[in-house]
């Protein structure tokens, strides 16, 4: 018993197996992010007003400079302009859009900071920084970022 079998022999094929990890999180939003999500459910976009007057979207709970509570929420958008974009040729199964699309940072009318979204567009040639876009709302909304199904270019404003 307990004799050394051998110094290591060739291990051969390394074993592997699928490993799936699920995080079933339910998160408490707090009043500011809660209001942003409430707005999405109601097809209203809101930002928070910072101490220097800038409107931050999605709303920040604290002033980015002073750290003080931000408490004033204002309506913005729903249209806005693209501040930067990236074209995804091969969407991932986890992405909202199945066909090639553009990630955009979109600065909503009345906002001073842009937010991230997915833009549905036929080709990358029609996408441009500065182009106007609007949200397409999901049919069923529950107060979730996915309540914005995606964004589209505002017609008549093609780049």
């Amino acid at each position: 018993m307990c004799d050394a079998v051998t110094d290591q022999t060739e291990v051969g094929e390394i074993l592997s197996a699928p490993l799936i990890i699920e995080y079933p999180f339910k998160r408490t939003t707090g009043p500011i992010i809660g209001a942003f999500l409430t707005g999405l459910r109601e097809q209203v976009l809101v930002g928070s007003k910072a101490e220097d007057g800038r409107v931050i979207v999605p709303p920040a709970e604290f002033d980015p400079v002073s750290g003080n509570d931000l408490t004033e929420l204002v309506e913005v958008g729903p249209e806005g302009v693209i501040t930067t974009w990236a074209w995804v040729t091969e969407p991932h199964a986890k992405h909202a859009l199945d066909d090639p699309f553009a990630w955009i940072l979109v600065k909503l009318d009345g906002a001073d900071t842009p937010m991230l979204g997915a833009l549905k567009a036929p080709t990358m040639d029609v996408v441009a920084t500065g182009a106007r876009v609007k949200p397409v709302w999901a049919d069923e909304r529950e107060g979730h970022i996915d309540d914005i199904a995606h964004w589209v270019l505002v017609e008549g404003d093609a780049a």
Binding site: A86, H95, W103, L105, L116, I145
Partner: peptide, 30 residues
């Protein structure tokens, strides 16, 4: 690139699964 989406804001960005390469591409365009 998908694992790294878990370091993003979990409510307003994480659920979009914006992968690390796409975010870098947004920066490059800027």
């Amino acid at each position: 690139p998908m694992v790294l989406t878990r370091q993003l804001d979990p409510i307003t960005v994480g659920p979009l699964w914006a992968d690390s390469v796409s975010l870098a591409a947004l920066q490059a365009r800027s």
